[in-house]
């Protein structure tokens, strides 16, 4: 859907930028969802207008009008057509962005009160542990396995994908992909007590050939909290 974006939206997007904006997608998953949002916004605006006009037109002298047209025609027919279309689109997008067994890069995000501990591949098969920053390569699907130490948290990088809750006792998996190198804002999205607002992290995306220093051997970051 990215190919349509450059045509119509830049103007709208001007006010929609920001390090945590879901409307400034930086990967295919977030882009699919952003596309869904713009389509739904257009539909919702049209329907609001339609209802507004109907209400405005009701002012005036009484008139003959068919009950079935309102309850069955508009109430059932119109709403079912719109909703079925929308649900279909939603399920289609949902299916496309699910994790599946295709050898995606696997990283782990472990949430605690109030911070993040990450495990990601470094050089070769070597897994590297870091605190507060997650490193992933660009251009490949990433499956992040989200877990929690204490209470419920939620892994969210708005520019890349939706949320996945970190729940004690469970391993949840979510997929995302980053288009271009850079640093992206990550947040804890589930209320988790006093430190919730400050429970942020950075997601650094790098070109596969250009490993960041933190992932190279002999980094102090290797001795993160055990889990």
């Amino acid at each position: 859907m990215k190919r349509f974006a450059p045509l119509a939206v830049p103007l709208l997007l001007a006010g929609c930028d920001g390090p945590a904006s879901t409307l400034a997608p930086a990967g295919p998953v977030a882009a699919e969802i952003a596309w869904l949002w713009w389509a739904m916004l257009a539909g919702a605006a049209a329907i609001s207008l339609l209802v507004g006009v109907m209400i405005a037109m009701s002012f005036g002298p009484p008139r003959e009008t068919s009950t079935r047209r309102w309850t069955h025609g508009w109430g059932l027919g119109f709403s079912l057509v719109v909703l079925t279309t929308l649900l279909g689109a939603g399920l289609w997008v949902g299916e496309r962005i699910l994790p599946r067994d295709d050898g995606a890069v696997e990283v782990r995000a472990h949430a605690f009160m109030w911070g993040w501990h990450f495990t990601q591949p470094g050089e070769g098969d070597n897994m590297v542990e870091t605190d507060g920053t997650l490193y992933v390569p660009v251009g490949q699907p990433i499956d992040v396995i989200v877990t929690a130490e204490d209470v419920i948290h939620s892994f969210w990088v708005p520019q890349l994908a939706g949320k996945m809750d970190a729940i004690p006792g469970r391993e949840n998996v979510m997929r995302f992909q980053v288009d271009s190198p850079g640093t992206y804002r990550g947040l804890c999205a589930e209320f988790c007590g006093l430190g919730h607002a400050g429970m942020l992290f950075d997601l650094v995306a790098y070109e596969p050939g250009d490993l960041p220093e933190a992932l190279l051997p002999n980094e102090p970051a290797e001795e993160g909290a055990n889990d």
């Binding site: 209400i55 037109m57 009484p62 009008t65 009950t67 309102w70 109430g75 709403s79 649900l87």
Partner: peptide, 28 residues
Amino acid sequence: FSAASVLVAVPTAVQVFAWIGTMWKGRP
């Protein structure tokens, strides 16, 4: 649950349109 959440808008729409129809039928 997504489908059920979407579907629940239908009976709501039936009511909203019945109310608007009532306004058409009368003189608001």
